[in-house]
Design a protein around this nucleic acid. Structure first.
Length: 559
RNA sequence: UGGGGCGUCGCCAAGUGGAAAGGCACGGGGUUUUGGUCCCCGCAUACGGAGGUUCGAAUCCUUCCGCCCCAGCCA
């Protein structure tokens, strides 16, 4: 753990906490929080925030609260709170025994509002939403004060009470803080604290018909929970003066708000609104579609919590807007899966091979389960005279540097025999089968005479093969920054982001259970999808292996 | 033309006056029954530009340039 800490790159937030600990600012406490609104599924950007807040607490012996910022019933649903709890737990952080809800503080917030009214710092406004907008002014011109701004404390108290009691229809009145209509910071131009919303809340039902606005609610939530460091994203920087103003005016416990840059990942989007649109309009198959940057999608795709946590650690935390390469995420998942995923053989795009001099009825060959993990042991894989290999592993007319099978060429079948291609069978110009000879002396994959081959191919015995659906994923969009590209972001969806193939698996793969992650040798890491049926497995490709040959070939076609 | 931020290698990111960490990517080499993994090596005389202060500046000052956010009764 302490070694862990030394390996971490310093960041400005950790520095602030260390200084606070040194000066005794919060009596040595570190209390953070992750405050999602339950209006959608969590994505990898939230993952960054979760890792940040929980890791900081963990590192300094503090606590991090999972708190639902459920102040807007019209957008929030219980389905989302359940998914968020599942995702945070999945990432592996300790939630303690309490999950917090802003809605549990509605009464306290209303009491605080009465305090503010009594201090003459809040008033009920009868202006319409349109009028409030007009009165707010613009970025360069000051706003003007509402004619209702100077109502008496008594009148405000009465009106606010009646708002709470449900005497007024939606939109007819709001409670506002009395700050400064001429402030350069628009957030300070008498911000709305409460609006009337006769809407049923997923937790409080119809108890309330007024709901607090974010700025008013959030600082109070932090204050009530005795948060020390309230970490949020950059766009809330302008809100900090208001956060501070409310807490100062109330003369109550006052955490420090700190802002960092949210995550942007190339070739995908991180906007909940747009993600929701992809789901609603069926551009993807639900929030957990493996192409989605949601935590549930990544989980289904085969990402591990560990890989996401190391990713979050490696991208760092800073204040500048940035766009992280997919390559780093992929590196993180490969790194973890390389260490833990058992190896199997599976052919994604089958080409039949007949071993013309093979006379036996078949046999079992010993295969290592994970060369990175000797304790994973080995298994027996059936071999026979009819096999499938990968279509792309054969070239009738091999280009330079292509080491795989070709007419007259000898290669190794992994853990099996050397084979040599002696004939190519075609139908209407398409290769349908290869005839090969094998060398019985090379059983297991080594030639007693010491001769070498330039490549090793994976294979599956045709007679024993299990047919499977394999889903190959590519980036969801074909531009790095779809949200800021020309036209609608939907115009940039990658039409080939999902390709389905029918392949063959070695029999041992039958034992996989939903969610199991494996390596298909030479092809990548795969994960058994919940769509699988008995005898009809469906595998998702999490990520390919690094592919040096693909790079060489691409370079060749480039010149 | 208001307010708030940010500019260090292709992508992230340390560094807070003593002289450019690290990771990814990329290139080269070695090992290898996964063209995987692993291991070596290389990769910013340079920190948005220009001035200035200083023995010394990415770090301080001036000025210019560029990018991001804010005018919801959303969060």
């Amino acid at each position: 753990m302490s070694e862990d800490r030394e390996n971490r790159t310093p960041n400005f937030i950790r520095n602030i906490i260390e200084e606070d600990l040194a000066s005794g600012k919060w009596d040595g406490r570190v209390q953070t929080r992750f405050p999602p609104e339950p209006n959608g599924y969590l994505h990898i950007g939230h993952g960054k925030a979760i890792c940040l807040n929980f890791s900081l607490a963990e590192e300094f012996g503090g606590k991090c609260n999972l708190r639902f910022d459920d102040t807007n019933p019209v957008k929030e649903e219980d389905e989302y709170v359940q998914s968020i709890i599942e995702d945070v737990k999945w990432l592996g952080f300790d939630l303690g025994d309490t999950i917090f809800y802003a809605s549990d503080y509605f009464q306290q917030m209303a009491d605080f509002a009465i305090d503010l009214i009594r201090k003459g710092l809040a008033y009920v406004d009868d202006l319409t939403a349109d009028q409030i907008r007009e009165y707010r002014g613009t970025l360069t011109e000051a706003g003007k004060e509402s004619p209702f701004r100077n109502r008496s404390v008594e009148e405000n108290l009465d009106l606010f009470q009646r708002m709470k009691n449900g005497e007024f229809p939606d939109g007819t009145k709001v409670l506002r803080a009395k700050i400064d209509m001429a402030s350069g910071n628009i957030n300070m131009r008498d911000p709305v604290m409460y609006r009337i919303l006769h809407a049923s809340h997923h937790r409080t039902g119809d108890t309330w018909c007024i709901y607090p606005m974010y700025d008013w609610a959030h600082g109070l939530e932090d204050s009530i929970e005795r948060i020390t460091h309230s970490i949020c994203t950059l766009e809330f920087e302008d809100h900090r003066p208001l956060y501070d103003w409310y807490l100062d005016a109330l003369e109550t416990y006052h955490p420090q708000q700190i802002e960092f840059a949210r995550l942007n990942l190339a070739y995908t989007i991180m906007s909940k609104r747009r993600l929701l649109q992809l789901v609603k309009e069926k551009h993807v198959n639900g929030w957990d579609d493996p192409r989605m940057p949601t935590l549930s999608g990544m989980r289904r795709r085969g990402y591990t919590p560990e890989s996401i946590r190391t990713f979050a650690e490696r991208i760092g935390v800073a204040k500048r807007d940035s766009m992280v390469d997919m390559a780093l995420l992929e590196f993180c998942i490969r790194e973890h899966l390389n260490a833990v995923a058992p190896r199997y053989m599976a052919v994604l795009d089958p080409l039949k091979v007949k071993i013309v001099n093979y006379e036996g009825n078949g046999e079992f060959l010993e295969c290592i389960n994970n060369p990175e993990k000797p304790e994973a042991g080995s298994r027996k894989v059936p071999f026979s005279g009819e096999l499938y290999i990968e279509r792309e592993d054969f070239r009738e007319d091999p280009p330079p540097k292509f080491y795989r099978l070709a007419p007259g060429r000898e290669v190794r079948l992994r853990y099996a025999y050397f084979i040599t291609c002696v004939d190519v069978i075609k139908e209407n110009g398409r290769i349908t089968e290869l005839h090969c000879t094998y060398d019985p002396q090379t059983r297991g994959g080594d030639a007693p005479d010491g001769r070498k081959v330039k490549s090793t191919l994976h294979w599956v015995s045709a007679r024993h093969a299990i047919p499977a659906e394999i889903r190959l994923y590519d980036r969801l969009f074909n531009v790095p920054d779809p949200s800021n590209a020309d036209g609608d972001f939907l115009d940039h969806l990658n039409p080939d982001s999902l390709q389905t193939t029918q392949g063959y698996l070695e029999p041992a793969l039958q034992e996989c259970r939903t969610g199991d992650r494996v390596q298909f040798e030479r092809k990548g890491y795969f994960c058994l999808d919940p769509d699988s049926a008995e005898g009809r497995p469906v595998f998702n490709r999490t990520v390919t292996l690094r592919d040096t040959w693909a790079k060489i070939e691409q370079k060749q076609s480039g010149d």
